[in-house]
C-alpha cells in the first residue's frame, strides 16, 4: 500500500460554494502541504476526509479503506488537530489525558506525559487558562499520543509565534522519521511548508489548481520582471498570472528553464509558494 490517503473526485455543493472534483494523494512517509486562501475549501476537504460531512460525489480512501465504511480501528490510526482546541475548558491536561485514554485503545500515557513535558505544558493547569500556543500544543500532544499513522492538521500552526511553530515542526519531523507515517497539513503560512512539505496541493475556489512535489513546483515556477513591451514576447501558454504597474510587469510563469533560455534579458526570480498563491488568487482580475 503506497498511499496513505487518496481523495478522488470529491464534490460537494453548498450554497454559493462548491468543492469541485477535488483529487489528490498523500504517499506514505511524506508530508503534504495543503494551501489555499481562506474559504478555498481546505477545511471542507479535511472534514470530508474525517467523514464529518457527506460529499455529493467522490471517494476517499484512508490507508486503503473507504472512509465512510471505516472501522473504529482505522479511525484510531488518524490523529487530528484543528485550528482551535476542542477540549473541555474546565479540565486540565492530566484529566484530558485520562478522558482520551478511555476513547483510544492505543492511548500511550507515557508518550502523552513526555509531550506535555517537552512542550512545557503544566498538567494541573486548567485548559481555559492556557495560552493559544499552549492549547495548540496540547491538541498536538493529544493527536500524537495514540500512535496515529496519518496526521491531519488544519491550520495547526497559524496564530503561533515562530519559536513555537519551529518546536512543532520539529515534532512533525520526528513523527515522519517512521516511513509509514504521513501528514496532511493545511496552512497558509507557506514558509513552514516550504521547509517541511514533500508535496504541495493548492486549492483555489474549491478546485485543485496544482498538486506536485514541492521541489518541482519551486523549480518550475518563476517570476519574470519585464517592461510592458517585453511582456508580449512571453509565451502566453506559460503565463499563470501577472501584475502590472506604471513602470513594469511581473509575470508568474510555470516553466522556469525555458524562460531562462528564451528571456535571458529579463529579470527572472524564483517564485515562492506565497507568490504562486498570490498570482493564482488574482486570476481574472
Amino acid at each position: 500500500m503506497e498511499y496513505c490517503l487518496q481523495v478522488s473526485d470529491l464534490t460537494k455543493q453548498y450554497n454559493g460554494f462548491c468543492l469541485d472534483h477535488v483529487s489528490f494523494d498523500v504517499k506514505q512517509g511524506s508530508i503534504m502541504g495543503f494551501i489555499g486562501e481562506n474559504g478555498a475549501g481546505k477545511s471542507t476537504t479535511i472534514k470530508a476526509i474525517l467523514n464529518l460531512i457527506h460529499p455529493d460525489d467522490g471517494k476517499i480512501q484512508i490507508l486503503g479503506e473507504d472512509n465512510t465504511l471505516q472501522s473504529r480501528e482505522c479511525k484510531e490510526l488518524i490523529g487530528v488537530v484543528f485550528d482551535e482546541c476542542h477540549f473541555h475548558d474546565n479540565l486540565n491536561a492530566e484529566e484530558t489525558g485520562l478522558f482520551l485514554s478511555k476513547i483510544y485503545t492505543n492511548w500511550d500515557d507515557i508518550q502523552y506525559k513526555n509531550y506535555l513535558n517537552k512542550f512545557n505544558l503544566p498538567p494541573k493547569k486548567r485548559i481555559k487558562e492556557y495560552s493559544r500556543g499552549m492549547k495548540m500544543k496540547l491538541s498536538i500532544a493529544a493527536a500524537l499520543s495514540h500512535h496515529p499513522k496519518l496526521l491531519l492538521l488544519d491550520e495547526a500552526t497559524s496564530g503561533l509565534d515562530p519559536v513555537i511553530r519551529n518546536e512543532i515542526l520539529d515534532v512533525f519531523y520526528d513523527f515522519i522519521q517512521d516511513e509509514e507515517h504521513s501528514i496532511l497539513m493545511s496552512s497558509h503560512i507557506t514558509s513552514d511548508l516550504e521547509h517541511i512539505a514533500d508535496y504541495v496541493t493548492f486549492i483555489h475556489n474549491g478546485k485543485i489548481i496544482l498538486s506536485d512535489s514541492k521541489d518541482n513546483i519551486l523549480e518550475n515556477y518563476a517570476i519574470v520582471k519585464c517592461t510592458k513591451s517585453e511582456f508580449s514576447q512571453i509565451d502566453s501558454s506559460h503565463i499563470v498570472g501577472f501584475r502590472s504597474n506604471a513602470y513594469s510587469c511581473e509575470v508568474l510563469i510555470n516553466n522556469r528553464s525555458t524562460a531562462l533560455k528564451n528571456y535571458s534579458r529579463m529579470t527572472i526570480d524564483r517564485a515562492t509558494l506565497e507568490d504562486i498563491m498570490l498570482y493564482y488568487g488574482k486570476e481574472g482580475m
Partner: peptide
C-alpha cells in the same frame, strides 16, 4: 535520508533525490 532531512530542515524527497 529522514534524519538528514530533519537536521537540515528540508523535505525528505529532497534528500532522497
Amino acid at each position: 535520508m529522514r534524519a538528514l532531512a530533519k537536521d537540515l530542515r528540508i523535505s525528505v524527497i529532497t534528500t532522497k533525490r
